[in-house]
């Protein structure tokens, strides 16, 4: 186990360098620079432009800028936003709970529904339900998120008026941010009805963001379950006279979950990528929307370090999943 962890950590170092290099290069490949964006679309005075660029250290050759950047990183300095002059770290930490809340809601939605649909489809293999679930999940997987989000807003928010169009909570409410999770903060506050309002704001974006993971989990659960149900030990369980529910859930699902868990971890990356689009569509004040705006403003430090932080998160989650995997699967746990 120790050497396993050591090897994984060893792999992180080149990964980090790769990410810094990539974000550094990509954001600079987009035409325009932060000063141009700040000064507006009309002609920029070349002298002022040069001054501003020098002040920001953007007049140096690229390799020098990169060394500066990595040097700062090595000291734990993530820099500050060119627009707001606040540190990238504090912006990230203040916005991240919103994204986390949305992602958790999406994962709960996708996990519960996906497992359920996958298990039932596997048990009723070849039935109308099975074909239906697999067809819908293929459609869900293939759907562009922004389009799907807009369709849902048009239908549920605009036509039916069931859910709000955007944001995390109605402007009527003044919720002091304690945990950063709106659902918890509204519960802690004494504003009546604010929790339900926050919940109504959360539903649609969570569904949109959870659609792709839902499709993946449902399909994965189904195929994994079908495989497990053919195993000898499932026959043994039935030969013990156990109830069908116990055979399916205790003996089947427990083993079928092992590959699903891996997919679940991989979905976290997809989820954060999806959050960028979902948050933009629903004006959800999280890191996705923050990054999009930063790219628009050529806010180099925010883009570089924001993406780096997200990448760290994805790596961390997959790392945790790998360890969880050991808990779910005794055959791995006992390997050295």
């Amino acid at each position: 186990m120790f050497s396993f962890i050591a090897r994984r950590v060893g792999l992180l170092i080149p990964t980090f360098f790769g990410i810094t290099l990539l974000t550094f290069a990509l954001i600079r490949l987009i035409p325009g620079d932060p000063v141009e964006v700040m000064m507006g679309e009309r002609r920029v005075d070349p002298e002022m432009h040069a001054q501003a660029m020098e002040r920001l250290g953007l007049n140096k050759p690229l390799y020098a800028q990169y060394i500066d950047y990595v040097g700062k990183l090595a000291h734990g300095d993530l820099g500050e936003s060119l627009r707001t002059r606040t540190s990238v770290w504090s912006e990230f930490t203040s916005l991240f709970p919103a994204t986390l809340e949305l992602s958790i809601a999406a994962l709960i939605f996708a996990g519960i529904l996906g497992l359920l649909a996958g298990v039932i489809a596997a048990l009723k293999r070849g039935s109308l339900f099975d074909h239906g679930v697999m067809g819908i999940s293929l459609a869900g997987y293939s759907m562009p998120i922004f389009w799907w989000g807009l369709i849902l807003i048009m239908f549920f928010s605009v036509s039916l008026g069931w859910t709000p169009v955007s944001g995390r909570i109605d402007l009527l409410y003044d919720i002091p941010p304690k945990t950063g999770f709106m659902l918890i903060d509204t519960l802690l506050s004494d504003e009546e009805g604010s929790f339900m309002d926050a919940l109504r704001h959360l539903i649609l974006p969570a569904i949109v963001l959870g659609t792709i993971p839902l499709a993946v989990i449902a399909r994965m659960t189904r195929s994994s379950m079908l495989e497990v149900l053919r195993e000898d030990y499932v026959r043994t369980a039935r030969a013990k006279g156990l109830s069908p529910a116990r055979v399916v859930f205790v003996h089947g699902l427990r083993n079928a979950l092992i590959p699903v868990l891996t997919v679940f971890g991989l979905q976290v990356g997809t989820l954060l990528a999806g959050a960028v689009l979902t948050e933009t569509i629903f004006s959800w004040p999280g890191i996705g929307k923050w990054l999009i705006e930063a790219i628009g403003a050529r806010d180099y430090p925010v883009v570089q370090n924001g993406i780096l932080l997200i990448a760290c998160l994805v790596i961390l989650v997959n790392f945790v999943v790998d360890i969880l995997y050991g808990f779910a699967n005794p055959r791995i746990r006992h390997q050295r």
Partner: peptide
């Protein structure tokens, strides 16, 4: 019915299978 049969199967009448390495659930 299935419920009555399950009271007998695994108790009064039980079975040992061919391949013991796959007949036990690896997770428990």
């Amino acid at each position: 019915n299935a419920r009555q049969r399950r009271k007998i199967v695994g108790k009064d009448m039980s079975m040992v299978f061919q391949d013991p390495m796959t007949a036990l659930n690896p997770s428990y």
